[in-house]
Design a protein around this nucleic acid. Structure first.
Lengths: 325, 325
DNA sequence: TTGAAAGCGGTACCAT
DNA sequence: ATGGTACCGCTTTCAA
């Protein structure tokens, strides 16, 4: 059932049918009703491909998603899809694991003919900028959780740097001067957090020591091993910040086994944090708000609206058992 | 840059370019090389829309995903996307929350022109069968984790019924005769589990009591309230099975607070189960295998291969702190 | 091995 | 308000 069939049945031209399809007001109500009736009767729906060929738009947004991200990001992607759908956009999902080539993924997505691209859950490094630039030349790119200054690339970010700095200040107030920072690699997001960590120290008149900024694999057992090693090496620390809840949780469990107790704070405020005992304090980066905002801004951008290339949202601390101010 | 531009630059017809694009062997090697070179040089990639219009295929699979599912399902969807991509298919994601209309979602997805549909993470009830049938008439439908006998609908399922029955038998061996079964609604999957529960009792020569089959909202606090109420009402039970890890975990925490201890077993073997203390025993339904299998079978189906309408994968118990055989 | 041309199902401009 | 028609970019016969 296509537009020709509908036109024939209604004894009108396909142009008129097309007008009805696109909600033009230049159609006599009687004609419109007749056409709509026939459409419904035949359960007709226009071919998105043919439409796309004609207009040059697919009404699809490519969503690039890091499949290795904390699983707390799963609800976020649902939120993105819902937000896009509300704006009449479909979601073409493309996941990328740590070992895959993000840049290739980005360019493939751009070539799929999507109207816009949303990059989420990363993990971006400087090297990805070139790929972003290329992709942005085909379709607007929106990055969640990063700050990248590339034309055609928009960013929505949570101010985690500031949040970490504030957290460090709070820990200092409680006489914690040797804060361990566990992170899982050199990503832009982690770099921000390390920045915040250093800022916190600086603001208190101290200098952060690199020996307490530790990279570790994002697995419980790896963190456990790491903490044990640190203790054996007699690296002293009296508080732990993990750049993900998983890292913080690993530390908490390792310390628990050793009989030690100290403030432990994670990031992302994932469901995990509330499920464990003792409940984990966590910096809430408001992933949901971030995602919804990103999706909305991207849609506005696609509708030709002027959109700010960089949007910031404040983070705050979800205080639970493992640390309270 | 389109096929005409390439053809012109190569001084051939678009038909020849198209042949190269589709890997036809009826092209002289020299011609092919020239065309490929020009394509690469111009960073050309064919319009998927135009292609779709021509062939009638979009090479897209619509994935319908229950956004309310345990977040452990997130890696699963990544796995689906990756598997589909390996077969040259793109993933059009459509999430559905509990309050939304699944049937509408299904029909909309079918109308988007996808080549096939993959339904995952549900939550299907009998009422959805009609919508499945309609959708299946436009494109093959693959359902993960259900057993639905509708033409054009394929199912891949884990035998959780049997697993639960086995678990009940194991609990009986340890003299647990009053097993509480927590579930989160009347879904086909839950129904299977309840079936298994009853089977387990029957096999031991007992009859399961409905008073110990309890529906509860899938939130920690709701489960907590529920358990407390049961204790106050003096409903006796000496073991708990939850149809998700979240439910089991909620029960475990509630019991812990009350100072009680008994076997607690969840389902899905999600990361959650390993992260908590004590670690939660859980029935592993091998979601990963399930998803990969589903995606692969769907692709085969799309390639015209004959595929069995129902595939079963066995489940087993991940034994941890809260119950060992 | 190559080319010409008729679709595929819409959109949108120009007439009427 | 409606119709006619030239695209959009690719696939796929049919001829040569």
């Amino acid at each position: 059932m296509n537009i020709y069939d509908i036109a024939k049945q209604c004894e009108v031209s396909i142009a008129t049918v097309s007008r009805v399809l696109n909600g033009s007001d230049k159609v006599r109500p009687a004609t419109r009703d007749k056409i709509l009736a026939v459409m419904k009767e035949n359960n007709y729906s226009p071919s998105s491909m043919a439409r796309g060929l004609g207009t040059g738009y697919t009404r699809m947004v490519g969503v690039l998603w890091d499949s290795d991200t904390d699983s707390h990001f799963a609800p976020a992607i649902a939120l993105i899809e819902q937000t896009l759908r509300q704006q009449g956009m479909s979601t073409l999902l493309r996941t990328v694991s740590a070992t895959e080539d993000k840049q290739k993924a980005l360019s493939e997505l751009a070539q799929q003919g999507v109207d816009g691209i949303l990059v989420a859950g990363f993990g971006l490094t400087d090297e990805d900028e070139a790929a972003l630039y290329t992709a942005a030349s085909r379709a607007p790119v929106m990055v969640v959780g990063a700050n990248i200054n590339v034309p055609g690339v928009y960013c929505v970010q949570c101010d985690e740097r500031r949040a970490i700095a504030g957290l460090v200040a709070d820990l200092f107030l409680r006489q914690r001067r040797n804060i361990l920072l566990l992170h899982d690699g050199d990503t832009l997001s982690n770099r921000e957090k390390v920045e915040g960590y250093r800022e916190g120290y600086a603001a208190a008149g101290y200098t952060a020591e690199d020996s307490r900024i530790i990279q570790v694999e994002p697995r419980l057992d790896a963190v456990n091993t790491c903490i044990k090693q640190l203790l054996m090496q007699r690296v002293s620390f009296d508080a732990v910040i993990g750049t993900t809840d998983m890292l913080a949780l690993g530390a908490q469990k390792a310390l628990q086994r050793t009989g030690l107790s100290m403030p432990v704070i994670g990031c992302n405020n994932s469901p995990l944090a509330q499920c464990v005992t003792p409940e984990l304090s966590s910096i809430d980066n408001h992933a949901e708000t971030l995602c919804v905002t990103a999706a909305e801004l991207l849609c506005r951008c696609l509708q030709g609206e002027e959109v700010s290339p960089y949007t910031v949202i404040p983070a705050d601390l979800a205080e639970r058992d493992t640390f309270r101010r």
